[in-house]
């Protein structure tokens, strides 16, 4: 198997190296990739969409269908993680509670539970969890700024590097950081499983809904210029605003999917104890 693998890999690599002999030089301004459609994107994106960041303009406007279905791919990846891993919630064998004032850990057998509203006990995972005061305090300070930065990346994607995908990932990472530094139950308390799944579909719905709205306003699917009478602006600015709506949808979907994948993977589908 190893030898066969080496032979296949070197055959493949040799063919590709042979192919590169006909490739354009690195950084050649006249390379075929830079000659046909790309000059039009560069020269017309500000004029037609009022967005200085060409990547955003191409992503959400000129190639809107591509991005719509990329979002659907991410959505279905989140759903397939859920369907592959999620198990029915059942009472665990034993639960562990730490008495906060004394630090004593109680092991409560199956079926037993603490009285509701007891504030002196903290449920901990069955693997050993240290008192991580510094980590928790640091993240408590850090997470609001990470989330603010994520919103900035989404909202400022028209003028600087950024957009829905990047901002959504940063936002999801903030929630994952919270779930890592506290525990999974605290993370799920902030962003529950049902809300996550609703947000996944809401993001895709916003994207497809903006496209469908253009259809109802007697234009093509995802032709944001048709939104001009609704928004009360000229068609070029309407395209810029349409890109923003779409990016918000993408951001919501990506954020929710990242957190859904994390919670399902780290708890092996139990959504109870995890990293």
């Amino acid at each position: 198997m190893k030898t066969a693998g080496v032979i296949i890999v070197f055959l493949f690599g040799g063919l590709l190296v042979y192919g590169t002999l006909d490739f354009p030089d690195w950084g050649d301004p006249d390379a075929p990739a830079s000659r046909h459609v790309s000059p039009r994107y560069i020269e017309k994106s500000l004029e037609e969409t009022s967005v200085p960041n060409m990547v955003t303009a191409v992503l959400a406007d000129f190639r809107g269908f591509d991005t719509l279905f990329e979002t659907v791919v991410i959505f279905s990846a989140g759903l397939s993680c859920f369907f592959l891993l999620r198990t029915k919630r059942k009472a665990p064998e034993a639960r562990f509670y730490r008495h906060l004032p004394t630090g004593i850990v109680l092991r409560i057998e199956k079926g037993g539970r603490l009285p509701e509203g007891s504030v002196e006990f903290e449920r901990i995972d069955s693997i050993w969890v240290p008192h991580d005061l510094i980590i928790r305090a640091t993240c408590r300070l850090l997470i609001p700024f990470i989330q603010l930065f994520a919103l900035y990346v989404i909202a400022h994607g028209h003028h600087s590097p950024g957009g829905g995908f990047q901002g959504g990932v940063i936002f999801g990472a903030a929630f994952i950081l919270y779930a890592v530094t506290h525990d999974l139950r605290d993370g799920l308390h902030r962003l529950g499983e049902k809300i996550t799944i609703v947000l996944c579909s809401l993001g895709v719905f916003i994207y497809a809904g903006v496209g469908a709205l253009c259809l109802f306003l007697e234009s093509n699917f995802l032709d944001y210029a048709a939104l001009a009478p609704v928004l009360g602006v000229d068609p070029v600015t309407a395209r810029s605003h349409g890109i923003l709506f779409v990016e918000i949808g993408v951001g919501i979907a990506v954020m929710a999917v990242m957190f859904a994948i994390y919670t399902n993977l780290s708890s092996v589908g139990k959504q109870d104890e995890g990293l």
């Binding site: 990739a33 830079s34 459609v37 790309s38 994107y41 560069i42 994106s45 060409m54 990547v55 303009a57 191409v58 992503l59 190639r63 591509d66 991005t67 990329e70 791919v73 991410i74 990846a77 989140g78 397939s80 993680c81 592959l84 891993l85 957009g163 995908f165 990047q166 959504g168 990932v169 990506v254 999917v257 990242m258 994948i261 399902n264 993977l265 092996v268």
Partner: peptide, 28 residues
């Protein structure tokens, strides 16, 4: 050229999502 950047921007996020699916299959 902005076009490769657009394609790879989505490809990076999709690769994270496919990594999640691959890992959950490995877990199963």
């Amino acid at each position: 050229n902005p076009l490769p950047h657009v394609l790879m921007l989505t490809a990076i996020v999709v690769s994270v999502a496919t990594l999640g699916v691959a890992l959950s299959l490995a877990v199963k």
